[in-house]
Structure formats: structure tokens, C-alpha cells
Simulated assay, not measured.
Amino acid sequence: MSTAAPDRVVIVGASAAGLAAAETLRRSGHTGTITLIGDESAAPYDRPPLSKEILSGAWPSDRLPLRSDADLDALDLDARYGYAATRLDVATRTVLLSNGTKVTYDGLIIATGVRPKNLPGAPAHVLRTASDALALKERLGPGRRLVVVGAGFLGAEAASVAAGLGTQVTLLEPARVPLAHAVGDEVGSILAQAHHDHGVELRTGTSVSEVVPEGVRLENDSVVEADTVLVAIGSRPNTEWLEGSGLSVDDGLVCDEFSAAASGIYGAGDVARWHNPLFGTSMRVEHRTNAAEQGMAAARNVLGARRPFAPVPYFWSDQYDMKVRAYGYLRGHDELRIVEGSLQERTFIAAYRTDDRLTGVLSMNMPPRRLRPWQQAVSTRTAWDSLPAPSRPIG
């Protein structure tokens, strides 16, 4: 791939990954044009607070911007907010926008993120943008009935906030316990019990076929009534605009270990599926920390650094009185071990094995300092057999 320093860098996607890329370009000495394209009219803002502080009303929406106007002005960006990228022509190095204009590039960073999946039938709420969060917030409170479809992190956080506001909440999940595919049945069962303890009606093993005016219809044809429906069943990478570009797309923009999709083209954030050499697998991570880190890595590489992007992914979630933190790659794990604390007391650290290595750790209500040695152990690919024995039996 070319190592020539680009003069014109185009970043498609004006959220955490795109902003991190722009800032890194300037910090690295890039003096050329940086065009930042975003389909929302707002400047880059933070998304994790949408399902927490914004939905609960703890924050006003003006706390969401990631940087002040002065900070953004200092970056000297060619900002194109409110326009989506609709086509990429790799041969001419051109991005076509929804307003019909074209932007040419020497280096391109694709950070277009994801959009929520939805269900057929009547309109329902989703939770991805600031306007989504504010619209849903108006539907919560005492005397209101909310159905949340999907008990993943987003759905669980929204259910937690809604219940705390006095809303009657029903949480529907097709799996046997929430997040079983990611955190395991044992930890998923603890998350399930927390919903029950806070008055949320959690129904697992329950699939929804459509949204109806009075609520949602289940696959057994029964109806769960609600005033408001939130669909939180996952997301789709925003890659349709790349059709015909010649870039490889497979549940995200396919990138190598350098986050490169092609010569001079890099992916970053939720949209990027890249080969993480630390874990030896392809992954696409939809978490805020990874978006910023990959945006920085992509910017350095577009300038010619050519360094593999090999992070230990990190995510966190606030649900009721629980603070969940995790490092590593937990999906597809072969074994879970409680290495500190107690599941029943909801204060613990769980370690995850894939093959013969420690590949992830998750903590609940533990001080961050207690998790740092485990983060380091994941990053050094520690052998599973060298870990301490379980502090207590699981169960």
C-alpha cells in the first residue's frame, strides 16, 4: 500500500471514531484538508449517555457534544454535517454526498457506524440518536407502559432507566437469559434477577413477530400491550453506500490488521470488521472506547504509520445499581470462572477462556483498580492454566 502522505483526507462519519481520527491527524502534523462528513446536522456528540443520562433526564442534551465549538474550530475542518455519503468511486477517489456534491480524497477513513434494526408493523422507538432518546424520554413515567424488545446492553439500560422513572416495563428476550451469547449463562442469570428485583417483567425465550398499535405481537400470536415500544434487537453496519465500490463488505467493512480496507482506505468504529492480531480473529466492536481508539489508529495509518490495531476491547454498562465493566473478547468463550468475589452478591470478577488462553474478563460492582491486572493478563495472552482457582463455586 502507498505510504505517501495524503494532502486531502476525507472522513465519512462524524461521531466518536471520525472525530478521533480528525484530531489525531492534526496532532500528527497533518496540515492538509480534512473533510468530516456526517449524516446528522449536529457536530460530533457522545452516544453512550443516550440510554442513561439523557433518557433519565440527569443530563440536558447540551452536555452531549464531544468538543466545544472552539475546539472544533481549531481543527480547521471542512465540515459537511447533515449530508450522507451515498456512493464511493475508488477509481477516481471520490465520495458522492446526498446533496449531489462530490468530495475527492487522497486518504479515506470510513466511520459510518451502524443503524438500529427494526421490526415490521406499526412504528416503534429505537435508540441511536439524540432525537431518538429525547422522543423516548417523553413517553416514560408513572402510569406509562413500555415494552422493550431485546435485553442486550441497550435494551437493559433503557429498561433500567424507565423503571427508575416509575414506568411499567416489560422486557422481552428470545434467549434463555440476557446476553448469554456474550457473557455466559451464569452472569446472564444475575442480570436477569436484577430486572426482576426492580419490578421489570422479564420474559425470556420470547420472540416478537411485529409491532402493533396496542403493543407487540409475539410469535405465538398473543399480544403484549404497551403505550410505547422500544426495539433494541441489534444493529446493521452502514455499508450500503459502498455497494459497487469494490470494497469487501461482510457484516461491516472488511479490513486487515491495520484497519485498511484497500490502498489509502481505512475503517474505524462500529462499521469496521477488522482482523485483531492479538486475538487472532476478525471482530466488529460496537463500543465507544473502541471507536475512538480505532479512529486514532486509522488516522496514523492513513499518514503512513502502518501499525497493527491490536487492542483489548473495553465496554461498560450501567443497569440499576450495577456497574458492569469488561475487557477482551468474550463471545464464543469455552469456559467462565469466577476469580474474585461472589455472583450472588453481585460483586465479582469473571474470567473467560477460549481454547487455552484468557481472552476476557468482566467485573460487576468492583473497583476499576481490581480489574487492571486482569486487563493486563488478557493483553499478554495469559495461559488459562496459570490463573488462580475459582474463589467460590459457580451457582
Rank of each mutant, 00 (worst) to 15 (best):
Val212Met: 06
Tyr83Lys: 15
Gln294Trp: 13
Ala377Val: 01
Ala135Gln: 08
Ile190Tyr: 01
Ala377Glu: 05
Gln294Ile: 03
Leu75Met: 05
Ile11His: 13
Ile37Met: 00
Ala262Phe: 07
Thr31Ala: 13
Gly252Ile: 02
Ser2Pro: 12
Asp89Leu: 11
Ser222Trp: 01
Glu40His: 00
Gly252Val: 00
Asp318Asn: 13
Ser51Ile: 04
Thr94Glu: 15
Asn220Lys: 01
Ser68Lys: 07
Asp76Ala: 15
Arg203Ala: 09
Glu340Cys: 06
Val312Phe: 07
Pro116Lys: 03
Leu358Arg: 03
Asp221Met: 04
Val200Pro: 10
Gly155Cys: 05
Ala5Val: 14
Arg300His: 15
Asp73Cys: 00
Val126Tyr: 04
Gly332Trp: 11
Val229Ser: 09
Gly113His: 01
Glu225Trp: 04
Ala43Tyr: 05
Ile233Cys: 00
Leu55Asp: 10
Pro213Tyr: 07
Tyr83Ile: 02
Ala310Gly: 06
Arg8Asn: 15
Arg93His: 15
Glu345Gln: 10
Asp197Arg: 12
Arg27Asn: 14
Val231Arg: 02
Leu371Tyr: 07
Ala163Asp: 09
Ala4Phe: 01
Asp221Val: 02
Gln376Val: 04
Phe279Tyr: 14
Arg176Met: 11
Thr35Asn: 10
Pro368Phe: 12
Glu201Ser: 15
Thr3Val: 13
Glu219Cys: 12
Thr101Lys: 13
Val361Lys: 08
Asp73Ser: 09
Tyr83Arg: 15
Val211Ser: 06
Ala377Pro: 02
Glu186Arg: 02
Leu64Gly: 01
Ser235Trp: 02
Ala297Phe: 13
Leu96Ile: 04
Gly280Leu: 08
Asp227Arg: 01
Thr354Leu: 07
Arg80Met: 08
Trp374Val: 01
Trp274Ser: 13
Val9Phe: 14
Gly166Phe: 05
Ile54Trp: 06
Leu171Thr: 04
Gly360Lys: 07
